[in-house]
């Protein structure tokens, strides 16, 4: 990923170490990503579902990622609320309300969420086991951002969460102790992982004590079977068929239990409503379909 800094902006190799605070971490991950993955929460059949092209990932008008683009209008303010206690809907906090915060986006895909979080001033690391998606994310960031500071704030790495944890736990440099994040985000990934319990445990490991872990996912209910799975994949064709396996969906109650097991406590759960005709999301009290859960690591 550092490749792009070198080509797109006039940054000398000497500066790269300075700019990338997490450089030691990236080096470790790269080595690790060549190792065979054991004990993984990554489901390889799931990973292949997301080999979309740059055009597919970044088409906010139609196609498989359109709903994820518009979902930013609700999930970004909720992540903001988790970090700074307000959604700042009036925009009073200026253009960079998340300045100084570090966010890990697990399962970042084509970087739809990472770029928006980076726009608000935070330092974002997006990881995804699918190298195609990471390549899309990196390319898009370099293609479309005109200011160089956001390119420095947002980083991507093709690796799994366990790669990151292994890299984190093997101190190579002395300054690698503070690799934990203010907020760890698992948005629209929970429904795709093989072992939810272990995945949540890993997310918790990456958060600072007192930091946040936030989830957005689909509830396992009868309405969600018909609407989020059947209608989205077979009637509206919003998503490619087979995107979701309903049996993997997690209910908010189950998730609350799981986060408790891994020394976190749920702060809030909010329902997210989606209108497929207008591609508009809104907040709602009903969590039967999509919901957002904010937990704090103790």
């Amino acid at each position: 990923m550092a490749t792009y800094d070198v080509t797109a902006s006039p940054i000398k190799i000497n500066d790269v170490t300075k700019i990338m605070g997490k450089i030691s971490l990236f080096r470790k991950i790269n080595i690790l990503s060549f190792l065979r993955r054991l004990n993984s929460t990554v489901d390889s059949t799931e990973t292949e579902k997301f080999s979309l092209s740059l055009k597919e990932w970044w088409d906010d008008r139609k196609g498989p990622a359109a709903a994820l683009h518009s979902m930013n209008t609700v999930r970004v303010p909720l992540i903001k609320e988790a970090l700074i206690g307000t959604r700042d809907e009036a925009g009073e906090l200026g253009p960079h309300p998340l300045k100084g915060f570090s966010i890990l986006d697990v399962g970042c895909g084509g970087g739809i969420l990472c770029e928006s979080l980076g726009e608000l001033g935070s330092d974002v690391l997006g990881i995804d086991p699918n190298p195609v998606a990471i390549n899309v994310a990196t390319t898009h960031l370099m293609l479309t951002k005109n200011s160089s500071d956001i390119k420095d704030r947002v980083k991507y790495q093709s690796c799994s969460l366990e790669d990151l944890i292994k890299a984190d736990s093997e101190p190579i440099d002395t300054d690698s102790s503070s690799e934990d994040f203010d907020c760890v985000v698992a948005s629209e990934v929970l429904e795709h992982v093989a072992d939810v319990d272990m995945f949540v445990h890993q997310l918790s490991q990456m958060a600072k004590p007192g930091g946040s872990v936030v989830f957005s996912t689909i509830n396992r209910t009868i309405p969600s079977l018909f609407l989020a799975k059947m209608a989205a994949e077979y009637i509206f064709n919003i998503l490619p068929r087979g995107t979701h396996d309903w049996n993997k969906f997690v209910t908010p109650e189950e998730l609350d239990e799981i986060v408790k097991r891994h020394s976190m406590s749920t702060v809030s759960v909010i329902g997210l409503g989606y209108n497929p005709l207008t591609n508009v999301w809104n907040y709602q009290s009903d969590t039967n379909m999509n919901y957002f859960l904010h937990a704090i690591k103790q």
């Binding site: 906010d60 008008r61 359109a66 683009h69 518009s70 930013n72 209008t73 609700v74 970004v76 303010p77 903001k80 959604r87 700042d88 809907e89 009036a90 925009g91 253009p95 770029e115 928006s116 979080l117 980076g118 726009e119 608000l120 207008t278 591609n279 508009v280």
Partner: peptide, 15 residues
């Protein structure tokens, strides 16, 4: 404003 506070792109057709 909604787009800005969500870190989005002003030209996006949905908004």
């Amino acid at each position: 404003l909604k787009t800005s506070t969500a870190g989005g792109d002003w030209g996006n057709i949905t908004s």
